[in-house]
Each structure stands twice: as structure tokens, then as C-alpha cells.
Design a protein around this nucleic acid. Structure first.
Lengths: 150, 150
DNA sequence: TTGGGTGCAAAATCTTTGCAATCAT
DNA sequence: ATGATTGCAAAGATTTTGCACCCAA
């Protein structure tokens, strides 16, 4: 069984990039925090714990590289920082997000949901869709429960 | 017939804000460029043409205020700057965007499209939706035509 | 006169870049 | 040797903030 990191290594190699120790450490952090939505700074601090010599610029360059290769997606929830999210392996499309305006949590929706909408947009707007970003802002189930208890 | 700016003035007043000349000039620019997706800097330069004494900070503060009052929406297409988009009057939901990865154009989709999806998300994820952001990245019809001609 | 609003400049944030040093082949 | 990669510091870009001044109620 091939590991996730090995497959990423191959993806890098097939574009003539190397999986350096710094890049590997960065990817590991992303894998270990797949549920989170880390900023470059977040990633940097986490990588530093295990590889203290790494520089912030390297993290930025690595994240940029991974974005180019479509291994991660760069997203922005409107708080001034870019966040980086591992693409779900094998998924045809980028997953969606539920941002809670009360507690700030970010949940993911892996299910596609947009098939019909995309078909309509391609047909009626003559737009060839390559990627999408869908984010809902609202109140997560946890905060709704908290409110009901009051 | 009440003008758009008069209605915005009332919205400001009902939250005890004034429509100062600077704010009015800023809103006017937004109204005159409703189809565009201006950054704060863009707005600043346009406002300056008619009100040269305005400061960039005032533009930022005005845009923030208008965002709070839900008169404009702050959006981010991943190019490092926030853009400000007048909400369509009377529209229940924020409109969607088509960003062309070839020419950088941004077209708008006013049609809602997400009714079914939102119903499903509210039901299955127990998420109370307050707002959404949907952006498609791809190739606009203009660039597709250009390619075919080659 | 009083508090909101403004302009300016400085500060704060986030991100990119130049460059010398280092590494792997 | 050679070209890719790195760390550091500096530069860039965007946005926010402090503060004195101004203005309308």
C-alpha cells in the first residue's frame, strides 16, 4: 500500500520537483491537520516544532508549489489571511465549507452538491468551469444547540 | 421615486450614521461601477477624481461601514485584495461570480441557483445558512470564442 | 460643546523577493 | 560543477490605527 506522502512525492517528481525535508515536513503538517484550515503562519509554527530550522519563506514557497500542483487549495474566508486545504484524494471537485459566524468553526462538505448547478452554468452562461469555491456563512449545529439550552 | 442613494442614506441614518460628502462620493463610485469588482484602492482613485481631498483611510472606513450594514459585500477572488460589490437591491441572496482564469474578467450571476442545495445543507448538516459565496473559476465565453478562431 | 467623522502618517499584517549559502546529483 | 532549494532579511503590498483637527447638531 502506497502512502499518501509517497503519492505526493510522485506528483512532485512528475513535475520535476523534489520532496525535500522541508517540503516533506510541511506536507506532514498538512496531513496531520487535514480537518483544519491552516494559514501559512499556522503551518510555519507547526512545522517549526519538528524542524526548527525552517524559514517562513520556504513554507510560503512550498504552499505555493502545492497549490500549483493542485495538491492543496488556497482559500480565503475573508479574515485577511490565506488558508491552505489539502484536496481530498480522488475527489473530482474541491469540497465546500460551512463557516460559523458565532464560533468561527469551519466544517467541510465533501459531497459535491453542485453537479446540476454547474451543468446549468456551463450551458446558460457558456462558461467552461475548471474549479469552484462554495462557502456558506451561518450558524453551526453546535452553536444552535447551545442557544436552545438557554 | 426614491433614488438608490436616498435609500442608502436612510439605511445609514437608521443605524445613526451620517451620509457625509465623503461617504456619498464613495457610494456614488460604487453605484457607477456596479458591474465592476473594485478594490479599496480602485475606489479611492475613482473617488479622488471628483473629491481629491479624500483620504484612503476614509475609503476603507466607509467600505467597512457599508459592509457592516450589508449594503456591499466584501469578496476575495484570491488575488490578495478585497473587493467590494454592491448588493443587488431586493435580492434575497448574494449573487455569484464567474472568474475567467485566462483574461481575469469577472461576470455575475444574479439568479439564485442554490435554493435546493441550501435546503439540503440546512437539513443534512443542521447548519443555519445566513449568507453564501459561490465563485466558479474557468474560461469565459469570450476567451472560448477567441480560442476557436485560432 | 460634544461626539462623530476626516486626513495624514505611522504602524501592523501578510506575502514576496534578492541573494548568498547549501544541497543533491 | 550545476541547478534547484533554502534561510534570512529586506522590500512590497494591503489594511488598520493614533491623533489632531474639523464640523454639524
Amino acid at each position: 500500500m502506497e502512502t499518501r506522502i509517497e503519492r505526493i512525492k510522485k506528483q512532485l517528481h512528475s513535475s520535476s520537483y523534489k520532496l525535500t525535508p522541508q517540503r516533506e515536513a510541511t506536507v506532514c503538517v498538512l496531513l496531520e491537520h487535514e480537518e483544519d484550515h491552516l494559514s501559512a503562519e499556522d503551518v510555519y509554527l507547526l512545522v517549526k516544532e519538528k524542524s526548527p530550522e525552517i524559514g517562513l519563506a520556504t513554507v510560503y514557497r512550498t504552499l505555493e508549489l502545492l497549490t500549483e500542483l493542485k495538491i492543496v487549495d488556497k482559500i480565503n474566508f475573508g479574515d485577511g489571511v490565506s488558508r491552505y486545504d489539502l484536496r481530498t484524494e480522488g475527489a473530482a471537485h474541491f469540497h465546500h465549507h460551512l463557516v460559523c459566524i458565532e464560533c468561527g468553526s469551519v466544517d467541510e462538505i465533501q459531497q459535491d452538491l453542485l453537479d446540476d448547478v454547474e451543468e446549468l452554468v456551463e450551458r446558460d452562461w457558456k462558461f467552461k468551469i475548471k474549479d469552484h469555491r462554495l462557502t456558506f456563512h451561518g450558524i453551526c449545529y453546535r452553536c444552535q444547540e447551545k442557544k436552545q439550552q438557554k
